[in-house]
């Protein structure tokens, strides 16, 4: 079906015979892309659609599902814990994305001007991104321990009081944000660096001739011309940031089986996805869990549309 549809659109007024010839000639190309689409159908599209069906049901994972209509969504809208998890997610998102973008820009600018060891430095900045999140979260748990952690020891050394990093809701959010920033800054710096290197050096030379210093050319040339890259980074960070899960789960998890995946003290680390995971997999509410997942989808969709609209609008006048 897709074969004929695409050939019709490709060729105008073709005879049946040549259309068939085209289809025959094109099929290796379709065969080549088939593995992805078959796997996507099985492991991407089917579970997604199934979760939509599940979100209208009540199911504990073992017995027979019961159709409950919109009950799950009505409950979701009135669920204080869900809205708390939405708030937590946005606090963590803001606390991590803004510093991450700024630091990544600075790092990229420095890497761009690095004369020596630039490859080694790039690797060093990229390493946190390919390190296991779980391993890092365990390490961060040790660093940000309240009474005996390295972070508080450093604060004490310069005369500052202890911060209860993992024993207060905001402390947990701050620690998760630091972890996310640490993990993604290098990755985004590399993307910014690629964006910077694609800027024509003639522009910089012209600016130099006009007497612009390095700071002036950064703000007047690099930043404006980096816009598309920044929008890309922002959208990707929005999607990953709003789906943050592992960091929160490991940092606040503990070995407890009595109250698993609850997000730690004051549920400060309960992100939207962690709440979904807790409801579905710890409390066996698969139907409700599915409706949370769709709630998350809608929220992320709204934000992606906002950033997309914003970026398109701002680009229009320059065209």
């Amino acid at each position: 079906m897709t074969l004929t549809a695409s050939t019709v659109s490709a060729g105008a007024r073709t005879s049946v015979r040549s259309r068939r010839r085209r289809a025959v000639r094109a099929w290796p190309a379709y065969a080549a892309i088939a593995p992805f689409f078959i796997l996507f159908l099985c492991f991407g599209l089917y579970p997604t659609l199934y979760s939509l069906v599940l979100s209208f049901q009540k199911w504990n994972g073992l017995g027979s599902p019961e159709w409950v209509g919109l009950d799950n969504y009505v409950r979701l809208a009135n669920d204080d814990t869900f809205w708390l998890s939405v708030r937590n997610t946005f606090v963590i998102f803001a606390l991590s994305t803004i510093p991450m973008m700024i630091i990544a820009l600075v790092v990229a600018a420095m890497l761009n001007n690095a004369v020596r060891y630039s490859t080694a430095l790039r690797i060093a900045y990229f390493v946190p991104n390919i390190t296991s999140v779980v391993a890092m979260a365990i390490l961060f748990g040790a660093i940000f321990g309240e009474s005996f952690g390295l972070a508080n020891a450093l604060l004490n050394a310069v005369g500052l009081p202890d911060v209860s990093w993992l024993n207060s809701p905001f402390g947990i959010q701050l620690t998760i944000s630091i972890l996310i920033t640490y993990q993604w800054t290098g990755y985004n710096a590399i993307i910014f660096l690629a964006g910077m290197q694609s800027i024509d050096s003639e522009v910089y030379e012209a600016a130099k001739v006009d007497g612009a210093g390095p700071v002036r050319s950064f703000f007047s040339i690099t930043l404006p011309l980096l816009r598309p890259t920044m929008i890309f980074v922002l959208i990707v960070s929005t999607i990953t940031g709003l789906q943050s899960f592992t960091e929160a789960q490991v940092l606040t998890g503990g070995p407890s089986t009595t109250n698993p995946n609850s997000g730690g003290v004051g549920q400060g680390g309960l992100t939207m996805v962690l709440y979904f995971y807790q409801q579905a997999f710890s409390h066996n509410k698969f139907g409700y869990g599915a409706s949370i997942a769709w709630g998350i989808f809608l929220i992320i969709l709204v934000f992606v549309i906002i950033s997309w609209r914003y970026s398109v609008k701002r680009e229009d006048p320059t065209r």
Partner: peptide, 13 residues
């Protein structure tokens, strides 16, 4: 103590 069982703080304490 008000800390988390099994956490690094717990082990230190």
């Amino acid at each position: 103590a008000g800390i988390e069982d099994g956490s690094p703080d717990w082990a230190s304490a």
